[in-house]
Design a protein around this nucleic acid. Structure first.
Length: 786
RNA sequence: GGGUAGGUGGCGGAAUUGGUAUACGCGCUAGGCUUAGGACCUAGUCCCGCAAGGGUUGCGAGUUCGAGUCUCGCCCUACCCACCA
């Protein structure tokens, strides 16, 4: 037996697989499709560390298992290479993003290939490739034509450090998610996608998805649906109406004052009529200077009354004061509230500070009953919500989800394919002229002026209007980094198609994605954006399913050995190439799957990796102990292993699948040998996890074809059960020994055996009852004398 | 404040869904083999106890013949959202 040389074996098989093209995906009338997808990476300059491939290894194991189980498998890989991370890297290293991206991709690809994945590299995609982003632009044009992409001048989140506008999803606690800088509100013309039109479907279709409740709940919170009513409050002695939104219309009679957000358009107008105009104006100016974060942090309520101006509570018909206060936010509801201090904590706090009346209108004892509410007294609050809405307002549903700010004032993104014309307005670039190529520029540094660096490219910007042929200007904003990733999974199905985004027949074969694997950080960004675009494409008839991804598995982080996140910044990253050199790709793969439940965050531990490597070497040595005849003592455990490993891979429970393989190996070593056909089955079970050594040992049995195109072993029920089984003997539920019993035994036999085995202990005790659980235990219940 | 997932040895974690808690692996201890070991083999390793025996799944109650698993109350951890009207 040669010593186990992982480097030689792994390089040999990686070359062989590529040469024999065993992983190429084909649409096959005879086979069912199984689309296994990884969230494709940004090819950052830092290369991969051992945390990155964890999800890829899992999807690889699953894809191999599915292929061996008779499915036609699509398991592709590609690059999400547009956007700020790639551009910032390029700026920092003073190279053109294109050059940096090409270099980084080469490095990533090399690292991935060393791990031995079964990707079909013929389907590799790159979001920065014009033949790819042609279709990203095409989707934008369709959105534009359906009125779902529009221009807006509303203030948006602006990161002064990245010098670009950002979507709500790009923020983390009021700061730029990428660089941590507090964002400002800035008024610059923006392209916005009307994702809110899809809010309801994005929400309700979650119920149809087999995703974890955790992810679904994250999306539900993000969409943030609230149902309530809009009610107009009239300003006294005028015809000005203040529209408010409330989820508690039943408390209308308890509204003792009103509040407007400082940004509310009516503030300017009402201020004119107020006796304390100066004071109000000062307050508003101060409030507007605060960042959203500062406003949220300062929980101490502040505000100012518009003195001399009153509103009329439509329920009580009483005059109530109007305040301007920054605890009311412009973008929530209508930016104005009716304040009900008796039933809202924030209003109560404010009322206390400003000495405002508190009127209870809902008695919440066992049920909620209205009082002090005129005709509605005595009514149940749920009923009152409807009745009061009908009488004074209109039902209204609002969402926290806001339309998707879709333009970036940066260079490295897909150009937005529209032309501005003085006579024709905004004109879409004709589809035949796609893609609108991103021009090569000499300076791609962000300008910070609210315009992208493309604006300085006169030659590129100045063009003809496709409608009237007169002078036109190209849109110079680019798309956000989320654009290309919002539909990439469709392109893998048909990556070289020049005439359509995806050929419908291919889409129908592969869709939807059976299993999608990636990080939880994408729960409220990528996964919402992709679902939105997919639903739009579904409405357009481009795709055949209303949801893109069926099963979703989130991968847990791999922390560095110091317990911190792996990061170049902490100098604690581990390069998979180094691990592979020392211990081999098979050991790396097995270890990452064995380290714990797939979705758990787990600390890297080199000792545990060495333990897995020991397992691999024991498997290697086992080839010396393969005999022609099967070892009958191993039949039962083998069949149970086949069942368990298959079930566990299907359920993404890789850690227990591997422990089952280890248990089997322990059994083989105890028997000091294994039959040839048993050995073959075992190698197949091992092959998704450790594809190189499995193929090496498989070929050593004079097999000509790769183990990876073999079929998955099956188990027989008759081998799953043993002839005898060990059962527990209990007295009053406490285990008092164990015994071996035939699996054929009947209840009476169980009871007899148990009474006999426990006869010493049962002396002088009165048996009240005997509980028999076949193949598990016998519990003898005795009378307790105290 | 709201939501979601959790809390089992020194560590990562198992537990057939109410049926012998601590599988598998790491680490550790002892012995063997070896010039040597990131090698291998054997035995041991939840806690108390010399033993017989007793105890143990964050804490406290409950249901049950039987609870890591179900119910109620409390404590703690992680992640997400949050002056959301």
């Amino acid at each position: 037996m040669k010593p186990y040389n992982h480097t030689r074996i792994e390089q040999k098989w990686q070359k062989r697989w590529a040469k024999d093209r065993i992983y190429e995906s084909k649409e096959s009338a005879k086979k069912k499709a199984c689309y296994v997808l990884d969230m494709f990476p940004y090819p950052s300059g830092e290369g991969l560390h051992v945390g990155h491939p964890k999800g890829y290894i899992a999807s690889d194991v699953y894809a191999r298992y599915k292929r061996m189980s008779g499915y036609s498998v699509l398991h592709p890989m590609g690059w999400d290479a547009f956007g700020l991370p790639a551009e910032n890297y390029a700026l920092e290293h003073k190279v053109h993003p294109q050059t940096a991206v090409a270099k980084n991709i080469a490095r990533f690809k090399e690292q991935l290939q060393h791990i031995g994945f079964d990707y079909d590299w013929k389907r590799e995609i790159n979001t920065t490739d014009p033949s790819y982003y042609k279709w990203t632009q095409w989707i934008f044009l369709q959105l534009f034509k359906k009125g779902l992409a529009y221009q807006s001048n509303e203030p948006i989140n602006w990161c002064p450090s990245c010098k670009t506008g950002l979507a709500n999803e790009d923020l983390e606690g009021g700061a730029c998610e990428r660089c941590g800088t507090t964002v400002e509100q800035k008024k610059i013309p923006q392209w916005v996608l009307k994702i809110t039109d899809y809010a309801d479907r994005l929400l309700s279709d979650l119920d149809t998805l087999p995703w974890s409740e955790h992810i679904k709940e994250l999306q539900r919170n993000w969409i943030g649906k609230s149902e309530g009513a809009e009610i107009d409050f009239l300003v006294s002695e005028s015809d000005i109406k203040i529209k408010i939104f409330t989820t508690r219309p039943d408390t209308l009679f308890g509204a003792t004052y009103m509040v407007l957000a400082p940004e509310h358009p009516l503030v300017v107008q009402l201020m004119e009529q107020a006796k304390n105009k100066e004071e109000v104006s000062r307050y508003v100016a101060l409030a507007l200077k605060k960042t959203p974060k500062e406003r949220a942090e300062n929980k101490e309520k502040t505000g100012v009354e518009l003195r001399g101006v009153k509103a009329i509570n439509p329920g009580t018909k009483e005059e109530i004061p109007i305040f301007v206060a920054d605890y009311v936010l412009e973008h929530v509801g209508t930016g104005a509230i009716m304040a009900v201090p008796a039933h809202d904590e924030r209003d109560f706090e404010f009322a206390k500070k400003f000495n405002l009346p508190v009127r209870h209108v809902v008695e919440s004892t066992e049920s909620s009953i209205l009082s002090n509410s005129g005709n509605f007294d005595g009514m149940d609050s749920e009923e009152a919500k409807k009745k009061i809405t009908d009488a004074f307002g209109v039902p209204k549903t609002t969402y926290k989800l806001r339309d998707w700010v879709f333009s970036r004032q940066r260079y490295w993104g897909e150009p937005i394919p529209v032309i501005h014309c003085k006579t024709c307005g905004v004109v879409p670039v004709p589809e035949k002229d796609l893609p609108v190529l991103l021009p090569k520029v000499t300076s791609y540094e962000p300008s910070g002026t609210g315009e992208s660096p493309l604006a300085t490219m006169a030659k590129w910007v100045n063009t003809k209007c496709p409608e009237c042929g007169e002078k036109g200007r190209r849109e110079t904003n680019t798309m956000p980094q989320w654009a290309g990733s919002s539909w990439y999974y469709l392109r893998y199905m048909d990556p070289d198609n020049t005439r359509a985004l995806v050929f419908s027949k291919k889409e129908k074969y592969w869709a939807p994605v059976d299993t999608y694997v990636g990080g939880i950080e994408h729960a409220t960004r990528h996964l919402i954006y992709a679902r939105f675009w997919h639903k739009f494409l579904f409405d357009m008839g481009v795709v055949s399913t209303s949801e893109p991804f069926q099963k979703l598995h989130t991968v847990g982080l791999v922390l560095a050995e110091d317990g911190r996140k792996m990061s170049k910044r902490y100098k604690n990253t581990i390069d998979p190439d180094d691990v592979i050199k020392l211990y081999g790709a098979d050991s790396l793969r097995l270890y990452e799957m064995f380290m714990g439940p797939f979705e758990n965050t787990i600390t890297w531990n080199t000792n545990s990796l060495i333990g897995v490597r020991r397992f691999v070497e024991r498997v290697w040595r086992l080839q010396e102990h393969v005999q022609n005849a099967d070892v009958s003592e191993l039949q039962s455990v083998l069949h149970r292993t086949v069942k368990k490993v298959g079930e566990d891979i299907g359920a993404f429970k890789f850690n227990t699948a591997i422990s089952t393989l280890m248990i089997f190996l322990n059994a083989v070593e105890k028997e000091r040998g294994i039959g040839k056909s048993q050995w073959k089955s075992f190698l197949k079970l091992l092959s998704p996890f450790a594809p190189h050594i499995a193929d090496e040992l498989w070929s050593a049995l004079s097999n000509k074809k790769s183990i990876h195109v073999e079929s998955w072993p099956t188990y027989e029920e008759k081998f799953l059960t043993e002839e005898t089984v060990i059962i527990a003997l209990q007295i009053n539920g406490k285990t008092r020994g164990e015994t071996t019993i035939s699996t054929q035994a009947d209840t009476a036999e169980y009871e007899r055996v148990a009474r006999e085995a426990l006869s010493e202990r049962l002396k002088n005790l009165e048996v009240v009852r005997v509980v028999v659980v076949p193949k598990r235990l016998v519990n003898i219940v005795v009378k307790v004398t105290s």
